[in-house]
């Protein structure tokens, strides 16, 4: 059993849990994930690690209440236990000195990107972060993100509102300025449609664009193949070859997007995804 030591509500329906897991905290690297099971009858669900404390032996992750398991997690607090907690899974994000790095963040990515930003900062990168959220209320981790980013662009708009406030607009501006202020790398941890759009936008400029994919997984150790995708003509598993991939090499985005919804149960579909998808073009 793994004890929960802290529960924070970051925004409506957005929570951060800290879990006592010294073995995982010891080895965690930016961009990796954990798989947890809430109780004996629970499902295996992956979450990107958003922070860890090696001394205290804790691992943090941020989640949004969507399905049965995340709703259940939202009710847990200090003193409660998770039946299973395994990780750190997946390959760590690639970190180096690139120069000017633009990151695209939305949803859980606002928090899960923090370890990557921190590592990039240590390598002396200049970071421009574009944050997308449906409204001000649903922005979180602002303090940390402000501290770690040299420039912060907020893309906060609701459906039907002015589109200049979308993340793609902000990215377009940056890319339009590419000749004067070069963008050396784009890293996206946001909705899959935004990652797809961003990859297409940077392709003509040949700016390396890394996307953090989160297809449906079952075991998370390369056994089931549920999270497979086509990368440069080869079958790759997000759990062992990813979750970070070169957005220009990912093929079959349509299938990847559709696969995510295979197991979205009725209760999730009724809430209505906030996907503004490819209208963002």
């Amino acid at each position: 059993m793994f004890s929960i030591v802290k529960h924070q509500e970051l925004a409506p329906k957005v929570h951060r849990l800290s879990v006592q897991a010294p073995v995982i905290a010891e080895k965690a690297k930016p961009g990796q994930f954990v798989i947890l099971i809430t109780d004996d009858k629970g499902e295996r669900v992956p979450f990107t690690i958003s922070g860890w404390d090696r001394e205290a032996g804790t691992v943090d992750f941020v989640f949004i209440e969507v399905g049965a398991t995340t709703r259940k997690l939202a009710t847990l607090g200090p003193g409660d236990q998770l039946a299973h907690f395994v990780g750190p899974l997946g390959l760590p994000a690639k970190i180096d000195h690139y120069g000017h790095v633009v990151t695209l963040l939305s949803g859980y990515g606002l928090a899960a990107m923090v370890p990557i930003l921190r590592a990039l900062k240590e390598q002396d990168n200049r970071i421009t972060s574009i944050l997308q959220a449906p409204d001000q209320e649903r922005l979180f981790e602002m303090e940390t993100l402000t501290e770690l980013s040299d420039e912060l662009v907020l893309a906060v708009g609701t459906r039907g509102e002015h589109m200049t406030e979308s993340a793609t607009m902000a990215l377009r501006q940056l890319l339009g300025n590419h000749r004067r202020v070069p963008v050396d790398r784009v890293i996206a941890m946001c909705s899959i449609c935004l990652m797809r759009v961003a990859s297409e936008m940077t392709r003509p400029l040949a700016i390396k664009t890394l996307v953090h994919l989160t297809p449906v997984m079952v075991d998370g150790t390369g056994m089931c193949g549920a999270c497979r995708l086509s990368v440069k003509g080869a079958n790759r598993f997000a759990c062992v070859h990813g979750p970070e991939f070169d957005g220009h090499e990912v093929e079959g985005w349509d299938v990847l997007m559709a696969r995510r919804c295979t197991y979205a149960d009725e209760s999730i579909l009724q809430q209505g995804f906030q996907c503004r998808g490819c209208s963002q073009w």
Binding site: C224, G225, A226, R228, N235, G252, V255, A258, R259, T262
Partner: peptide, 8 residues
């Protein structure tokens, strides 16, 4: 092969 409802 990566279509929905194709399982390993």
């Amino acid at each position: 092969e990566n279509l929905n409802m194709v399982y390993s």
